[in-house]
Design a protein around this nucleic acid. Structure first.
Ligand SMILES: [Mn+2]
Ligand SMILES: [Mn+2]
Ligand SMILES: [Zn+2]
Ligand SMILES: [Zn+2]
Lengths: 133, 133
DNA sequence: TCTAATATGATAATCTTTATCTAATTAGAA
DNA sequence: TTCTAATTAGATAAAGATTATCATATTAGA
């Protein structure tokens, strides 16, 4: 938490609430997840502030945006290089920590400058599999 | 094209225009790409019909939805298993045909039923790299 | 030709995300 | 502690993408 007290980042109650919520959170929440949860405790929280803060944290590299759910964006506080497993039914996102050594064949890469990769595994989580039938 | 003339799919001029546009298209167009292009020739085309048709084609398995651009959904007529390379600047999407044998380590998979995977490579395409500087 | 089933498209509605702008707050200097 | 410049919050509007409604038009067959 203290790691935010620098680079001219002003600390406000709202930011602190968001950062506290995110700290150690491995659920890849959406903006709405964050807003809904926090407003219960801090009803003065605004949606705009959630987006503003996420934008700020993203720029600082404290949070990374995940494009894996077509419905909405999710945010990850684990900024290390890793991959994800998403449940097609409940959209729960799980981390996959493993360094797959995948590289694009030279003939397909051409002059494209490849900066990174992300593997999305998809399927059905144990919970949904049980409930389903 | 003739492959659509079955399973009770009614052929309308609008659908034919969309299918013709998609046939062999490797650009992973968005709904808007499709709509914008087609309306020049068929001004009677409606956005709703584009979405309706994409939904129909998706259900039939003739088209697959791609979640790689947080701004909008893209559609792929190549339904074989393959991966993508996206330019962070212009959002151009390129196919990567290669079967990476990636599997989730057992200890991380647990009881999760994994149905597939998709690798997203990202970087900067030659065009954007040149223009950029 | 007739008809049942299906599709179109105008329109409204919903949702997510971004933009604007003023009042309030923060951090740091004095 | 007080003051002030810079930043932030949040109400609100706006923008975009996608979905829902539903009356009208069209299609595929009988
Ligand atoms: Mn993660
Ligand atoms: Mn493709
Ligand atoms: Zn699930
Ligand atoms: Zn590019």
């Amino acid at each position: 938490m203290q790691k935010f007290r620098d680079k001219g980042l002003k600390l406000t109650p709202q930011r602190l609430a968001i950062m506290e919520y995110l700290d150690g959170n491995r659920n890849h929440p959406s903006a709405d997840d964050i807003y809904s949860k926090i407003r219960k405790i801090y009803p003065m929280m605004s949606f705009a502030t959630v987006y503003n803060t996420l934008e700020t944290l993203k720029k600082r590299g404290d949070v990374v945006e995940i494009t894996i759910d077509p419905e909405r964006r999710h945010y990850d506080t684990d900024t290390s290089h890793h991959h994800h497993l998403i449940c097609k039914k409940c959209k729960k996102i799980k981390d996959i920590h493993r360094d797959f050594s995948i590289n694009i064949p030279e003939d397909q890469k051409g002059a494209f400058e490849v900066l990174g990769n992300h593997v999305e595994f998809y399927g059905v989580c144990p919970t949904c599999n049980t409930k389903g039938e």
